[in-house]
Design a protein around this nucleic acid. Structure first.
Lengths: 151, 151
DNA sequence: CGGTATCCTAAAAGATACTG
DNA sequence: CAGTATCTTTTAGGATACCG
């Protein structure tokens, strides 16, 4: 937890106190792409990672099966082999996904959630539930925004 | 809630049952970019929106002040005027941010969280806390991954 | 079958200049 | 001061072919 010594030069003095409190909070969020919070949020927000977490939440999958499921359920257009490998690698590096290889010819590779990944999936589901509970509020806000925009 | 009639052709029969359960869950997540869940996750995952939510959580800010704070606390490099406007527009459209204009010369524009936006900020903070609680697990996983990678 | 390499497109974000 | 327009850079993602 670094985040000390934030330079507030140029920010109105009236804001120093609240900004100071905020600085601690934002230090917790982290500023660099490598920061775990930023990295995790980035994963949840990308096109496939959350979907992958949900699918892996059901059990262990081979690469090809996983890809087929994502291609059927995830979107009109499916995920490319390259991107699935990429996303799985990132999820593995962060400790959310475990990759298991059985040495045969050809080798059998399978993926599953780690305990940490299962926790993250639970967190994601909480957020999904919150959004869905407020789905109508959001759609209303959009409708109002788009309507006034058309003036 | 559409999401009925998922085509499972080509997916091994052994997977039909779990995939079917999964289909309902993924329908809740939504597949299209316009889906509230996808859109909200995308916001939380982008470079600035979560930071903006945190700053607005402290009160009402003018555009320029907001930008100065983000440029000091948010990253080595600050947010551009254009991107801040863009992000605020999106947050406003989703109903998370309220934009208030006082008609003067020049007009005074200020931004604050809506009640819904405050809820989202709380959700984001929950996730931030979870990641920070597991920060070391994540960093360990990365270290192990990078080490075996170097073989 | 899983993975990589190469190439390409689309989308996000930054820099800069300008307007009411 | 807030916002827009234009241009450029960066990054995510997709298509395809090939390798062990």
């Amino acid at each position: 937890m670094e985040g000390a010594a934030i330079d507030l030069t140029g920010i109105d003095a009236a804001f120093h106190a609240p900004v100071d409190a905020l600085a601690r909070q934002m230090a917790a969020h982290g500023t660099r792409r490598e920061e775990p919070v930023r990295a995790t949020f980035g994963l949840l927000g990308d096109r496939w990672s959350t979907l992958i977490l949900l699918v892996l939440g059901m059990g262990t999958w081979r690469h090809a099966e996983l890809r087929r499921v994502l291609s059927r359920l995830g979107a009109e257009e499916g995920i490319s082999q390259r991107v699935l490998t990429l996303k799985l690698r990132t999820l593995e590096r962060e400790g959310f996904v475990a990759r298991h290889v059985v040495e045969s010819v050809p080798p059998k590779v399978s993926y599953a959630l780690t305990p940490l990944g299962a926790q993250l999936k639970a967190q994601a589901e909480r957020l999904i539930d919150w959004v869905n509970a407020n789905r109508d509020v959001i759609l209303d806000a959009r409708a109002r925004f788009d309507a006034q925009d058309a003036d």
